[in-house]
């Protein structure tokens, strides 16, 4: 009986060790690529919400990382941040870029989400994100028709909850940016 049990343990341990070694190589091999994609995605996201910026700098205020965008003459043209909030299924992560001089949002980009494919997942689409382009700061109203004033956001049909969640995340993020940069700076 003893020899039998030891054989079982040995077999499983050998498989486990081989698997761990093989996977650590896979991990080492793929990690640089995965990190590169993540960095690239982040840069892309900052660029898409601060379109006129040439250079970026990270700055931590109140424990939040902000990305400041500068144009070619080193003038700060906007600030971006990553905000998170609950969506329909799970946490949604959004990048928001704002113009602090004129108090409006340049645009938003959804970094990660788990919304329903084909419905809530359309928060990543151009049509929904367009809602936030050049939008003044304020409390947003999600409506199921074409927006009639500046503070209205058009919901994605069949995904009102996701649409509302993003509006809430953006709204809160704007407040955080205003707090960190003292309103009209």
């Amino acid at each position: 009986m003893d020899t039998k049990i030891s054989k079982l343990v040995v077999t499983l341990s050998v498989i486990g060790i081989i698997s761990a070694i093989a996977l650590s190589f896979v991990y080492q091999w793929t990690t640089p690529f995965i990190e590169k994609h993540q960095l690239e995605a982040r840069k892309q996201a900052v660029r898409s919400v601060l379109p006129e910026a040439e250079e970026f700098q990270e700055k931590i205020i109140n424990g939040i990382t902000f990305f400041e965008g500068f144009d070619s003459s080193q003038k700060r043209i906007g600030v971006a941040m990553i905000a998170k909030g609950p969506g329909y299924q799970n946490i949604i992560e959004v990048m928001i870029g704002v113009n602090l001089e004129k108090d409006y949002i340049f645009g938003i980009d959804v970094l990660s989400h788990e919304e329903t494919p084909g419905l809530g997942a359309r928060i990543t689409g151009q049509q929904y994100r367009k809602n936030y382009q050049n939008k003044p700061f304020g409390d947003y109203n999600v409506v199921k028709r074409t927006p009639q004033n500046d503070l209205e956001v058009e919901a994605i049909s069949g995904a009102t909850i996701s649409s509302r969640s993003v509006a809430k995340i953006v709204q809160d993020a704007v407040k955080k940016i205003n707090e960190a940069y003292g309103g009209g700076v």
């Binding site: 077999t11 498989i15 698997s19 896979v26 091999w29 793929t30």
Partner: peptide, 30 residues
């Protein structure tokens, strides 16, 4: 592979290949 640890061994081997697939997709088809 001894008969009594057949299933655990199979699951271990499968999990290894799945982890590989997962990292491969994350790296090249994000």
């Amino acid at each position: 592979i001894p008969n009594n640890v057949r299933i655990p061994s199979f699951i271990l081997i499968i999990a290894t290949f799945v982890t590989f697939t997962d990292y491969f997709l994350k790296a090249f088809f994000p």
